[in-house]
Every structure is written in C-alpha cells, then in structure tokens.
C-alpha cells in the first residue's frame, strides 16, 4: 500500500508528541508551579515560623536575637495566663467541633441518602450560601443579637430566660454557627461514598437503625468526620476576631495578635502560633490510632 502524503503539521503537534513520549517530563512541567508554590509558600513559611519561635527578643533594645533556645516555650508553660488561654482555646474548639458534628451529621445524611437530587442541590446551595457573606458582618450581627438589648434576650424574656450575654458561651455559639458548613460538606461527601447496599445489608442482617449507624455508617464516615473536624477545630484555634467581639476573654489568636502588633515580640508570637499546630498534630495522631484513616 502506498503511504499517504505527509500532511502539513503545526508545530504544536510536534511538541505534543515530544511530551507524549516523555510522560515524566510532562508531569514535571505540569506540577512544577503548583508544587513549588505549596513547598515555598506553605511549608516554607511554616518552617520559618518554627525557627522564629526559637529566637528571642532583647528586652532593652527591642531587637530580635537569632539565638536558638526554648525560652519562649518556657514562658508559655510558666505563665498561668498563657496556660489558661491555651486550655480555653482548645476546650472551646473541641466543643465547637462536637457541636458542629452533631448538627451536621443528620443534615449531611439527609442530603446524601434521603433527599431527591433537586432537594440535595438546593441544600448544597443553602449550606454554601452563608459562606458568601462577610465573616465580619456575621460576627457583628451576633454581637448585636447577644447584647443586653439584643434579639436573643428579647425572644427569651417572655419565657423568663436570659441570653448568654458576652463570654465563653457566646464564643462557642458564634464559632459553631460560623464553621457548620465546613463540617457538613465533608461529611456529606463521605456519606455519599458509602453504597446504599451496605446500609441495606446491615438492616437485612438484623441490625436496628442505631446499630447500623454505630457499626457501619459511623466507621465508614469517620475519615470525613475527621476532615470536617480539622476545619472546625483549626479555624477556631486560629481565630481572634470572634472572641474580641463577643467575649472579653482571650484566645491564642489574641495573644499572637497582641505580640505581633503591640508588644512587637515576634518570637513569642511565633511560639504561640505553633501551639495550634502541635494540638492538631496530636489530634490527628489520636484519630489515626482510632482507625479514622483505615477506610480512606
């Protein structure tokens, strides 16, 4: 058979073929940018944070002394106020996480397993919509609602109750409100991945609804639950605006803010900023011990 006359080819086709024959090169070209950004901007800055937390501030000159040591961490542990701030932050973050998980699970389950495709789409939008409005507006609205003359007291008054006012309860409430979508979405995605037949099978084998939830749905949704809790937990750990607006108590974030902006003690701020990272690492290790990532 006569070979067909060669077609005129654009140069791009030659490049495509060249890359097709070198898949590794193609992959490197594709990933160089994003991976470089990830390494430098995220991991690099985290590393710098760790290094900076080991430096000190010269009390007299106000200069930073690049002399590694653990003094900042010593100060964190020795100062009772700092200890109670860490404890309070972690405790409220944990409470917020539990609250959101309890609220999110039924909603996510309904979205993933019960609702019709139409209702599901509407619910996804409804869950996402609060994220479109400004964080500050939402927190200020809560501040107004929780104030003495605010809506919460106004509604509760006829029943003879008082609102929580400003303080730790208000912080817990507002954080739970703010981060709920970050819990719903991963759990929804996780539940959607569980085949319905597994739920049917559990009932078929004699398990009542609660047993099916405990032995089948919860273990399989655990990675999603952990993913959601990473959001709610770490977002709470790092926030300082909400505590400022609806409480007079301090969070880790407030201390970092004060040391960066006011006291100009960057090393101490860095040391304090590593605390949430350390808490998250411990949390994830515990989650792994509990088998949270086995069915990933």
């Amino acid at each position: 058979m006569a070979s067909p006359a060669p077609r005129a080819e654009p140069a791009a086709s030659g490049l495509a073929r060249f890359l097709w024959r070198r898949p590794r090169l193609q992959l490197s070209l594709l990933l160089a940018g994003p991976v470089g950004w990830l390494v430098v901007a995220y991991l690099g800055s985290l590393a710098v944070l760790f290094v900076a937390s080991l430096w000190q501030l010269d009390d007299f000159s106000g200069e930073i002394v690049q002399n590694p040591g653990l003094q900042n961490f010593q100060e964190l542990i020795d100062t009772p106020v700092y200890r109670s701030i860490v404890l309070r932050t972690a405790l409220i973050a944990a409470l917020v996480t539990i609250t959101d998980a309890v609220l999110a699970f039924p909603i996510a389950f309904y979205m993933a397993k019960v609702a019709s495709p139409r209702v599901r789409a509407l619910l996804v939008v409804a869950v996402l919509m609060p994220l479109w409005s400004s964080y500050l507006v939402k927190v200020y609205t809560w501040r107004i609602m929780l104030s003495n003359e605010g809506m919460v007291n106004w509604v509760l008054d006829p029943v003879g109750l008082n609102g929580p006012g400003f303080g730790n309860v208000a912080t817990w409430l507002v954080f739970s409100y703010l981060w709920l979508p970050f819990m719903i979405l991963p759990i929804y995605a996780g539940l959607e991945r569980i085949p319905n037949s597994l739920i049917d099978a559990s009932g078929d084998l004699g398990a009542p609804t609660w047993t099916t939830f405990r032995r089948v749905i919860l273990p399989l949704a655990l990675p999603a639950l952990v993913a959601g809790s990473i959001f709610t937990f770490s977002l709470t750990l790092g926030d300082y605006i909400t505590p400022t607006l609806v409480s007079s108590t301090q969070f880790i974030g407030n201390v970092v803010y004060a040391n960066v902006g006011i006291a100009n003690n960057l090393p101490l701020a860095a040391a304090f900023a590593t605390v949430p990272v350390a808490i998250m690492v411990v949390y994830l290790l515990i989650a792994r011990r509990l088998g949270a990532f086995e069915s990933l």
Partner: peptide, 12 residues
C-alpha cells in the same frame, strides 16, 4: 437474608 448484587461486604 439477602445476597446483594455488589455483595455489599463491609469494607472496614
């Protein structure tokens, strides 16, 4: 009891 088309074995 049912034997499912996709077997529905509990993966965990």
């Amino acid at each position: 009891n049912t034997v499912f088309q996709d077997y529905a074995l509990f993966p965990h």
